[in-house]
Design a protein around this nucleic acid. Sequence first.
RNA 1: GGCGUCGUAGCUCAGAUGGUAGAGCAGAGGACUGAAAAUCCUUGUGUCACUGGUUCAAUUCCAGUCGAUGCCA
Length: 320
Amino acid sequence: MISKVSIDGCRDSIMILMTFDNPLLVVLTGPTASGKTRTGIHLASHFHSEILSADSRQFFHEMKIGTAFPVPHELACVKHHFIGHLSIHDSYNISRFETDAIQLLERLFQHRRVVFLVGGSGLYINAVCHGIDFLPDPNPVMRIELKLRLEQHGIATLQEELQKTDPEYAAMVDMANPARLIRALEICHTTGVPYSSLRLNNPKERPFRILKIGITHPREVLNERINNRVDQMIDAGLVEEARQLYPYRHLNALNTVGYKELFDHFDGAYPLAMAIEKIKTHSRRYAKRQMTWFTKDAEMVWFLPSETERMISLIEKSMC
RNA sequence: GGCGUCGUAGCUCAGAUGGUAGAGCAGAGGACUGAAAAUCCUUGUGUCACUGGUUCAAUUCCAGUCGAUGCCA
């Protein structure tokens, strides 16, 4: 059952890891407020395992209430990773998450046959499952410059430049999306080669198998759960949490449903009750986008959150 | 009670000096490679409050009714 596996790519010495044959990563995902945290803890305790979070906003320890952190007794049940391990002031990106998660998984799989990746950030889940292309980190000043150009001269200037520097990507990208254009141009500028030439899109081989479990509810039920959870967050002190983070509202981590609406409320844009309604509405839309992403994934096996016994038997079967 | 203003898409509101109407938001669907709880795309027929009148033609003008709202009493 236990074998020795050498990992390529270590410079100084060949690293020997003890690992189970064919360990299993169970991805547990679904839209916001579907019950991932609870179900994840149930499953992970059943298998005496640990949880990696794949939630790009629960990384930040300052954002406990608004991102629905697992509560202390939940965290005590099962060992969690990547929950509150960063500050909103840290710079972090999906590439670093991929590296951190893969390194951790290699360690965990030395003595575990199954580990859980729980969260709703589809892109981050993909990075763990299939990897993303290696790209150098761009100079942060470059993004600021490109943003400034966008503000001053409009999107056309970025579209024209991308058309010239990387016509292949220009032909496939959503040219109306400033974020995509800025990203592509900053890569072109940093590397001196077209972005499209670096987008190899080769799925990486992983030393583990993957089972993807999606949980969701009928839309009306999910909407109801979202509404209730937002009310609970408010009761739990979200307004105060947001008020303390208000000075840092420009940080990317705080461009997040639940915070940005309250920041606007603090600015006097609308009363608190309206901010709360907007948080609910924006959470519903977020859930919709998540579902668009997840339902496209043919590997996803869908369950209601109540069907934990069926999930357990599927996981057991997959472990064989 | 008197005088005004308003009544148009689920919501907030544009609009045509008469030829049956359009934005934002919501809703629905979609995209997605270091911003991803982010960013972006597609999608708008509704008794234009009701009843009459004028007119070839009224949601638009006129009158009345109902409702909302403001001021005066």
